[in-house]
Design a protein around this nucleic acid. Sequence first.
DNA 1: GTCTATAAACTGATAGAC
DNA 2: GTCTATCAGTTTATAGAC
Lengths: 191, 191
Amino acid sequence: MNTQTLNDTAHKILDVAEFYTQTRGFNAFSYKDIQSDVGIKTSSIHYYFPTKQDLAKTMAARFNERLIEKLTVLTEKHTSPTNRFKAFNKIHVETVSQDKFCLCGMLASDIDGLPELADKELAAFFSIIENWIADTIKDGQQHNEFNKELNPKLSAQSYLATIEGGMLIARAKKDPKHLKKILEETLTRLS
Amino acid sequence: MNTQTLNDTAHKILDVAEFYTQTRGFNAFSYKDIQSDVGIKTSSIHYYFPTKQDLAKTMAARFNERLIEKLTVLTEKHTSPTNRFKAFNKIHVETVSQDKFCLCGMLASDIDGLPELADKELAAFFSIIENWIADTIKDGQQHNEFNKELNPKLSAQSYLATIEGGMLIARAKKDPKHLKKILEETLTRLS
DNA sequence: GTCTATAAACTGATAGAC
DNA sequence: GTCTATCAGTTTATAGAC
């Protein structure tokens, strides 16, 4: 799926749907909620996304496309893997500061109502981010920034779990610094 | 709140509500879903829980009561803090094996629709479990099972985040062993 | 592409009989 | 306590005019 061919209105709909999914959850908003914010009627939204499942699928696909872009920028911008992770952590703390949870984390919690989505975009999300973390750990090991005895893949899976759970808890506590502290500790544990 | 005065029917309703919350999410089931499973009409469910908010509050309260019981049993049963954590981890892997997510983790993701609940039972849940983990770490440090340089509170917060995120991801991947591996690694990191 | 109109099903919730 | 009947509002979704 490629979302770059979508027009402005479709992107606007996805923006609003994304916001509601990250703040409330996918099952806690309706086409009517989108209607008010985008300025078109629910029937027009159905023109772009016939079913809510279609909306979810496209939303997750766009999220993954943008995730890949962001991670690539991060890798290119920061030579030091440690600094790369610091920037990476900062993004997640900022998400919580906006009372948001990870989009795919939220979709994962609603997985039972999204059977089609679960097998594709959600799995892709976890792969993309796990691989990036693992590659960054490997890079850090080669640059003597991280402990060479660490298993990059397992450490990456653990890191991702800590981020997702940390976001969930910090958001529930309304305390972004809670996540910040946890991720700082996670990072020091790599060296 | 004390849920021990509730009768069998009320507990049966809570059982079903709990199941749906852990598998689908709180916003993804209705009184009608409960009706079929418990064998009483939706209007009768309203007799016990006038609003769905009441249901959520009582459900979370009962969950916390039972959590405290379980953690107490775990502490009494296993002298070794390491074995205590192993049993603790096992409970969470079993939850994922049943395609379930943590009840409070799920409620935390639906937090925006549950304002009343958020400030009380959810905060209580995180406190109970964080404190138990921290106490178990301290105990392990005194028994020379864990690294004495660890900050018990911060390590406990990180541990809990890893559990919650690990459950979320493992459930999405439909792979309970994914959580098992992560939690085994988390445990070895304490020593 | 966007609208109005409309449908059928579902939602949480209440009133009142038994 | 549990039922039937009913409510008003919402939900996803479609048909057809402009």
